[in-house]
Nucleic acid binder design. Structure first.
Length: 294
DNA sequence: GATCGGCCCTGCCCGC
DNA sequence: TGCGGGCAGGGCCGAT
């Protein structure tokens, strides 16, 4: 599932291969992918055809390319299974191809492929976002991610400690800290020996800061090896998988021994999602989840 | 206002 | 072999 590291890998690919591209043709095969674009399919096509795509930017899991000479951007969210790929010219269409963008200068066309259809694309106006950054409208309420220069650690730490929600719910809240998804939330919580159900306001400032730091650390290490791939649902723009799945300590390791204590990792349900925890290191739900300082 | 749960959606896997 | 159900989960939205 694409989270911050995977989206950043894609952004780098777009920056290298797509930025500066003059759009000659836009083909929409899956109109649902444009459900967030207010002007509909025809409006999407007309806004992009003849335009030139500028620099590739990212905040959290949101990607965008500014439309040059306008105050708009082509925004994309990959959802669970979205891919932005640049196949060789003449390559057959992927089974779940949603949008294809061709360029006038002969570069490879950009394809938006999405099996589970939670991803989307839109052309949106650029507005003032959090952290003093100009961002597409959909990104205006999204908090800076830990890799941005405008990221305010103390503000994020305090936001993380607010409320009675389980800490994992707050960590996944993109308005608090952006970029963290289910995989890296579990990894950060494992790293800090903290159970997902720990009440957010029970954390000390040091614990909250440690958790943000752990999330940044694990995402940084994943980025260094091209992100996390469990199957072919995440690939970079050239169709290559990442290798961080081999380094995961908790996520997806149900039944396997915790590398710290040897206790079998268990899967628990949280908000219709899975959470992987070490029952010993992170405390067992029902026995009173404990957040332990390291 | 804060929190929670349901829903969207498709392909794979497993049990019957 | 075929069918049904569970699972994966980011973000939106309505209910509480």
């Amino acid at each position: 599932m694409p989270e911050l590291p995977e989206v950043e890998v894609v952004r780098r690919g777009l920056a290298r291969w797509v930025a500066g591209g003059p759009v000659s043709r836009v083909e929409v095969r899956g109109p649902r992918a444009l459900r967030r674009h207010e002007a509909g399919e025809a409006g999407f096509v007309s806004r992009l055809t003849g335009a030139t795509l500028g620099t590739a930017q990212r905040r959290g899991k949101f990607l965008w390319l500014q439309v040059e000479s306008t105050e708009e951007a082509l925004v994309a969210h990959l959802g669970m299974s979205g891919q932005l790929v640049l196949p060789e010219a003449g390559a057959p269409a992927e089974p779940h191809l949603r949008v294809r963008i061709e360029f006038a200068d002969g570069r490879r066309p950009l394809r938006f492929v999405d099996q589970r259809t939670f991803g989307w694309m839109a052309v949106e106006p650029l507005v003032a976002g959090t952290g003093g950054r100009v961002v597409p409208r959909s990104v205006a309420a999204i908090a800076p991610d830990p890799f941005e220069s405008c990221f305010d650690l103390s503000a994020a730490t305090e936001a993380l400690r607010r409320g009675s929600r389980p800490i994992k719910g707050v960590l996944l809240d993109q308005a608090v800290v952006s970029g963290v998804g289910n995989i890296y939330a579990d990894e950060a919580l494992w790293s800090q020996r903290m159970h997902w159900a720990t009440e957010a306001r029970s954390l000390t400032s040091a614990q909250a800061e440690g958790l943000v730091g752990a999330a940044k650390d694990v995402m940084g290490r994943a980025l260094a090896v091209g992100g996390t791939s469990f199957d072919d649902l995440y690939v970079d723009v050239n169709g290559r998988s990442g290798y961080f799945a081999r380094a995961l300590e908790a996520y997806g390791r149900s039944g396997e021994p915790c590398s710290r204590c040897g206790t079998a990792i268990v899967r628990e349900r949280f908000a219709n999602r899975s959470s992987y925890v070490c029952p010993l290191c992170q405390g067992v739900e029902g026995r009173g989840p404990k957040a332990r300082a390291t």
